[in-house]
Simulated scan of single mutants.
Amino acid sequence: MPPLPFALFAALSLAGLALVRSLLRHRQEAALAREAADAASRREALRQHETKLAHALRINSMGEMASGIAHELTQPLTALLSQSQAGRRIAAANGLADSPIDTVLAANVQQAKRAADILVRLRAYVGRSAAEAGVHDLARHVADIVALSRIDLDRRGIALAVDLPGAPAPARVDPVEIEQVIHNLIRNAADAVEQAGRANGRVAVALAPEGAGHAITVRDNGAGIPPEILPRLFEPFFSSKPDGMGLGLSLCESIVERFDGSISAENGAEGGAVFTVRLPGARDMREREEATE
């Protein structure tokens, strides 16, 4: 064979072999990359599964702890309630009805009953049996919890502004649970103001109609919510507080959603944070009477 065609044939053969080898190598590398990606995906799925198991374990542990606490607190609360009621009867028998001491005892009775209701709902929440909602006046319950929160805010030197409608604001809720939500939001707002070191610290609570429902807003003039924290505010076990458990806002969201409502958070235009609870309205307060018949 002449040397030139032979050299050309050899060169083409070598080029073909090099191309085949390159294709095989790329194929092998692609297969290895797929195996590595599959392994990483399996590791991530395993990690997420372990995280969910750990989360479920913490939930169960906290449920057992909450049930035990509720059981232990029931007895002293019952004693406090009965002793306060007995004190009111003694005061009335001695002509001290409607006196300052009777007013204090009446407040003890009211708060002991409220604490007992909270414990009942806590045990129901742990047992996964949600409380039955009825039609209640939001304005009344917001006013009640604001009066309770005002004592704490006055002690901290934080002003509390309230804007409530003159007419009833009917909504289908559980009164104790919705009071828990508002109380938690007010307390968080006061904490934010205190942490910011505001000399003129203030918290504003408002209830207003919004479309066919109602909107409850809690504002503060604290430092606001950092952008990296805002998307995770309602995530269970996430907290920006050093000693926080990360359950308050998560529980608030669960309660509000159970009443077909929503809760949101944002930074105010003038600074501070704004939390808004939106709840669908009931037709009127007559629904409450019909529900109790």
Rank of each mutant, 00 (worst) to 15 (best):
L4F: 10
A10V: 08
L12G: 02
R21L: 15
S22M: 07
E29V: 14
A30L: 14
A31S: 07
R34H: 12
A37D: 11
A39I: 02
R42K: 03
Q48R: 15
Q48I: 10
K52T: 12
N60W: 13
E64M: 10
T78P: 02
R88C: 14
T103R: 14
Q110S: 12
Q110H: 09
K113S: 14
K113E: 15
I118T: 06
V120R: 11
G127D: 13
A130M: 08
E132T: 14
G134K: 04
L138M: 00
L138R: 01
A143T: 06
I158E: 00
A159I: 03
D163H: 07
P170M: 04
E177F: 12
E177A: 15
I182C: 11
D191C: 06
V193Q: 04
A196D: 02
G197M: 13
R198P: 09
V203D: 07
T217S: 13
V218C: 01
G222C: 08
G224E: 11
I229R: 09
F238Y: 14
S239A: 07
S240E: 04
S240T: 10
G244L: 00
M245Q: 15
M245H: 13
M245A: 15
L247I: 00
I255D: 06
V256L: 09
F259S: 05
S262R: 08
I263A: 03
A265H: 03
G271V: 05
R283T: 08
D284A: 10
E287Q: 15
T292H: 13
